[in-house]
Write a protein that binds this DNA or RNA. Sequence first.
DNA 1: TGCCTTTTGTGATGATATGCACATATTTAT
DNA 2: ATAAATATGTGCATATCATCACAAAAGGCA
Lengths: 219, 219
Amino acid sequence: MADQKIPQVTAKRLPLYYRYLEKLHAIGKQRVSSAALAEALQIDPATIRRDFSYLGELGKKGYGYNVNYLLQFLRDFLRQDEVTNVVLIGVGNLGTALLRYNFYRSHNTKIVAGFDIDEGKIGMDIDGVPVYSMNRLKEVLELHSVEVAILTVPVSAAQSTTDQLVNAGIRGILNFTPARLNVPSHIRIHHIDLTVELQTLIYFLKNFPTNESKGEQNG
Amino acid sequence: MADQKIPQVTAKRLPLYYRYLEKLHAIGKQRVSSAALAEALQIDPATIRRDFSYLGELGKKGYGYNVNYLLQFLRDFLRQDEVTNVVLIGVGNLGTALLRYNFYRSHNTKIVAGFDIDEGKIGMDIDGVPVYSMNRLKEVLELHSVEVAILTVPVSAAQSTTDQLVNAGIRGILNFTPARLNVPSHIRIHHIDLTVELQTLIYFLKNFPTNESKGEQNG
DNA sequence: TGCCTTTTGTGATGATATGCACATATTTAT
DNA sequence: ATAAATATGTGCATATCATCACAAAAGGCA
Ligand SMILES: NC(=O)c1ccc[n+]([C@@H]2O[C@H](COP(=O)([O-])OP(=O)(O)OC[C@H]3O[C@@H](n4cnc5c(N)ncnc54)[C@H](O)[C@@H]3O)[C@@H](O)[C@H]2O)c1
Ligand SMILES: NC(=O)c1ccc[n+]([C@@H]2O[C@H](COP(=O)([O-])OP(=O)(O)OC[C@H]3O[C@@H](n4cnc5c(N)ncnc54)[C@H](O)[C@@H]3O)[C@@H](O)[C@H]2O)c1
């Protein structure tokens, strides 16, 4: 498979394409061109074609892309029909919001459990997701075959919690804390630093008041 | 000023440096090398030196960087002593979490108001931040000189809300909805798509089980 | 003082990503 | 059937970043 060759930026755009194709499918659209996708997603059409070209020759010249075919292809490629179970550590302000949202409704990802050290939270059920004590971490991860954790604890608890996660066999962490986590090299970490995002936006506004440059890739 | 020449990625890392320097300052550290910063922030030391070099010659050979000096320099450069007022549209799950967090405690950014259409929410006070009806948008933006909005409404309301924001004179939007917003070219938008972040993490885990590659820059 | 060590700032190179521009293939209309 | 219109896939130029590697400068120690 072409997997090994896909640029990181492309991998980040594929879910975007997938989501939009679902929408097109839902309204009965049969075909779509890179130009139409470009318009809707605000990505250059050549970039879109290049992205798809990494996966194979998915389109037809003079026609464009068949929505059903492309959708199905991406579904397989992104393994959208396998449900991935994840857990969330730190059921506070942000953690609760993410739990409530859950990603399952529209996606293939499901938060199956929350964890906290606050006795008041342990035992709660948030929109169907149970909150456990941290000492049940390993047990629950194994039960649900969980390999990915969302980390929304206070920054002071970030490293110790991460150590516990690594110990319990996690492989990937989506880190919302500002901490730079130390982990063995086989663990993958993605950082989402909302404070930095906000500050960066403000920085650009203050320093490039008349913004002609294209927006960068965010999220 | 060197402003015009700073790469986007550097601009995103500056707040990171600033935050860590504050920490060093707090524990009384006087000097720091790019190697030490690299270790703590998990960024290549050459990248750090290059980043600083865009701002001037801030270090001294054989010595490193003076923490106080660098901190003060970045404070000025990032205008960390000017408070930037922002508003938040859509006081739901995510919006409430962001409001509660607020960025003011440790940063120069303050959410001064929330907005919603839900009658049950209008008039509320969330940790000191009032929630207004959407028809008071222009008035409140002007009162507090707000130019930046955080958007956390349902995706269905994203474009119409954006139009209202643009109309009311906003210049930058931090967009948490999955919608690709259409705005005049002078408006700057940063997207934070949490679903895509999670999916991308999972994609990389599934496809590169033994991850040797460095993690990319995320937020 | 003089020598060795440390560490910067940056030229050079390599890696990754974007987007133009067009040959090519296919559709659509007449 | 033929021509015109459409839209892909990709070579190539350009842009943006990351990192190596080292001369040069400054510190620190004997
Ligand atoms: N809330 C936001 O909008 C926001 C924005 C930017 C960054 N963040 C970051 O996200 C993280 C969470 O923020 P928050 O506002 O939800 O904080 P919070 O205090 O509301 O929630 C933290 C939760 O973690 C739990 N916790 C504490 N120590 C723990 C431990 N050792 N193990 C397990 N659980 C533990 C607490 O009981 C609490 O429920 C913080 O690191 C914060 O910096 C949050
Ligand atoms: N909650 C999450 O963790 C999460 C994760 C990923 C993405 N998102 C995105 O963030 C957005 C908000 O998510 P949420 O879970 O907080 O939703 P939510 O339904 O809890 O909150 C949305 C809020 O917006 C208000 N609102 C609706 N229409 C409005 C309008 N026209 N003008 C002003 N306010 C309006 C609603 O009254 C509600 O208070 C959504 O677009 C969602 O896709 C949320």
